[in-house]
Amino acid sequence: MDLRVRLLGRALRRLSVATMDDEQLRRAQEQRIGHNPVTDLLLGDVARGVRLTDGTARGEVGPVPIRTYRPVAAGGPLPLVVNFHGGGWTLGNLDSADWLCSNVAATVGAVVVSVDYRLAPGHRWPAAAEDCYAALADVVGRAGELGADPARVAVMGDSAGGNLAAAVSLMARDRSGPRIAHQGLVYPSVDLTMSSPSLDENASAPILTRADCLVFRDHYLDGQDPTQPYASPLFAPDHSGLPPALVQTAEHDPIRDDGRRYAEVLRAVGVPVRLTEYVGMPHGFLAFPRLCRSAPQALAELCAEQAAALA
């Protein structure tokens, strides 16, 4: 394992959700990262030539915040990419996705919209999934206002966001919603029964541990059935007709095998899938582009797959 990854894991261990009480979790949810030299060094800064605009979209029960990223120099209707941030359905916000979303906007030449869905444990499943689907439908319906093409739409997300991107793809198919051309699933959590062998293999991995996975799952579901397809997309009774997918996994990730298994079930029904495992990387490595040496490669792969699907 890369030395920088080991050091990063040690530095972040005290921030583990598994050790947080309710008050610490509440404070963590209220924390906004912002941009300064230190955070930009760790998390990456906004790509040059991209304009950020904050607004709202329709959620399940009311408006949810969104952030739109658009290349300043681009003209004409652009492809639309809708992003769902990670954080175990419990943490994370729009700031945490700035590096990824702005770089996708700049590289793909797309309008990227990031959705700030309601978080657990204050809002249990299916709040996040329903917010994300409602926002997707709303944003696609208003694509013209954003200078985007409603016929060229992709979704993406990392970790819990990958779960939500996969769930939204299922929901759009099942509900005759927006046509999605591609789903970018970055180390996605797709099995909330926690049955992947990698959970034990990487139980004490840096960044995310098995204990963290269980706490995040329990915050989100609160005892509800983990095999519900929009909670665990792996258990959908039918995966046919879903968008082509890129599934990116990390070697030292407790939920690494979630991604492998999801790629297998998609391929089994004829859905085009590219599966890439990043050797030596932990869960969440794309969130630390200055410290994790594989982050630029993973970003380049994600952008290339999206650009091809949205051409």
Rank of each mutant, 00 (worst) to 15 (best):
V108N: 10
G109E: 09
A110R: 00
V112H: 05
D116N: 09
L119V: 09
A120C: 03
P121L: 07
P121D: 06
G122P: 07
R124K: 11
W125V: 08
P126E: 01
A127K: 03
E130W: 04
D131K: 03
D131L: 00
C132P: 02
A135S: 12
L136F: 13
A137S: 13
D138P: 01
V139N: 03
V140F: 00
A143F: 11
G144W: 12
E145T: 15
E145C: 09
L146S: 04
A148L: 10
P150A: 07
P150K: 10
A151M: 07
R152Q: 06
V153P: 03
M156L: 14
G157H: 14
D158W: 00
D158P: 06
A160Y: 15
G161C: 07
G162C: 04
G162S: 05
G162D: 09
N163M: 03
L164A: 10
L164Q: 08
A165R: 06
A165L: 05
A165Q: 02
S169K: 05
M171D: 11
A172R: 04
R173W: 07
R173F: 08
D174E: 12
R175D: 05
G177V: 04
P178N: 15
I180M: 13
H182D: 04
Q183A: 14
L185W: 11
L185N: 08
L185T: 12
V186A: 04
Y187L: 06
S189I: 06
S189E: 09
D191A: 04
D191V: 01
T193Y: 02
S195W: 10
S196G: 10
S198D: 01
L199C: 04
D200T: 14
D200V: 09
E201N: 00
E201A: 07
N202M: 14
A203L: 11
P206R: 07
I207T: 05
L208S: 04
T209F: 04
T209I: 10
F216Y: 14
R217S: 14
D218G: 11
D218L: 06
Y220C: 10
D222F: 03
G223E: 02
Q224N: 02
Q224C: 08
P226E: 05
T227N: 00
Q228F: 15
P233M: 12
F235A: 08
P237Y: 08
P237S: 11
L242A: 01
